[in-house]
């Protein structure tokens, strides 16, 4: 067995002296003055800088611009639906009426936005398009029933529009704007009721109004009712579309939400 030299610095001394050096370094660093440098959180790797969003308030113009964007969102949805060519003659006429109503609503909102001192927003809601519409339309690829899916999508977006006006009206500061906005909201609810009657003609009134549970149908689709509740609801609107996944046995599902901070169309946003 070889003889190792006896080191002059044993392990205990090494640990003790190392700890002393670290402690002194920390104290010296803390005593520095006028130290420059970023206060941002540390970043790993090479990433683009986080954008700084403009300051924005939620005022009447923003709420009405958001409502206008919903009208253009509905128009975008119907344009896509028309391209699928799955509706029958009566349904096509019905949707044609909805399209003309949404165009009129969008124009009426433009006048209201001007009254509120804002600029029109004449395109679909960017957040809802990215987070809801595009995924929903994507789920229609190789759908097992496009006709069913298109009607359910139309119902969900009409319902969303109606509920959104109900929510926005309660937030409008200028009282004189509320009636004009709610007039549009009522028409959206009428659209939804008519679509529910087409999709589910045998049961116009929700079982909830009889104290019974509201279940999805046997294939897992939410059942629309022309009269779904006692009071207008602002809760999420469930939508299921597309074919059943062979592996998990599920279909694409999402929940549409009335506009909130992430989907408001702020005044700094442009089409």
């Amino acid at each position: 067995m070889p003889n190792f030299p006896n080191p002059s610095l044993d392990r205990r001394a090494l640990i003790r002296n190392g700890g002393l050096a670290l402690s002194m370094g920390a104290i010296i660093a803390a005593c520095g003055n006028d130290r420059a440098g970023s206060d941002d959180p540390g970043r790993l790797g090479i990433n683009p800088p986080v954008p700084t969003l403009p300051e924005a308030e939620v005022n009447d113009a923003v709420l009405l611009r958001t409502a206008q964007s919903l009208e253009y969102t509905a128009l975008a949805v119907y344009e896509q639906a028309a391209g699928l060519d799955v509706l029958n003659g009566d349904e096509t006429k019905l949707v044609g009426r909805f399209v003309s109503d949404h165009e009129r609503h969008a124009a009426d909102l433009g006048a209201l936005i001007s009254r509120a001192g804002g600029e029109e927003f004449t395109c679909p809601n960017p957040f809802i398009m990215d987070r809801a519409v595009m995924p929903i339309l994507g789920a229609l690829d190789d759908s097992d029933d496009l006709h069913r899916d298109v009607l359910n999508i139309a119902y969900a977006f009409e319902y969303l529009a109606g509920a959104s006006y109900q929510a926005l009206v309660g937030a409008l500061e200028e009282a004189s704007l509320r009636s004009s906005a709610m007039l549009i909201g009522g028409e959206e609810q009428r659209h939804a009721a008519a679509l529910a009657s087409v999709i589910n003609p045998d049961s116009l009134i929700s079982p909830a109004l009889f104290g019974e549970p509201v279940d999805n149908d046997d294939d897992g689709f939410p059942v629309p009712y022309a009269i779904p509740s006692t009071f207008g609801q602002l809760t999420g609107i469930d939508l299921v579309v597309g074919k059943r996944d062979e592996g998990e046995g599920t279909r694409f599902s999402t929940q549409l939400q009335t506009p909130a901070a992430n989907s408001f169309v702020y005044e700094y946003e442009n089409c």
Binding site: G162, Q189, I227
Partner: peptide, 25 residues
């Protein structure tokens, strides 16, 4: 809804409009 200031009343009435519109259809 354009004649009242209280937000609870506005919200309630807006809710009524939603459903009475559906009733009418």
């Amino acid at each position: 809804v354009g004649k009242v200031e209280d937000r609870d009343i506005v919200a309630a009435m807006a809710s009524f409009v939603s459903m009475e519109s559906r009733h009418a259809t």
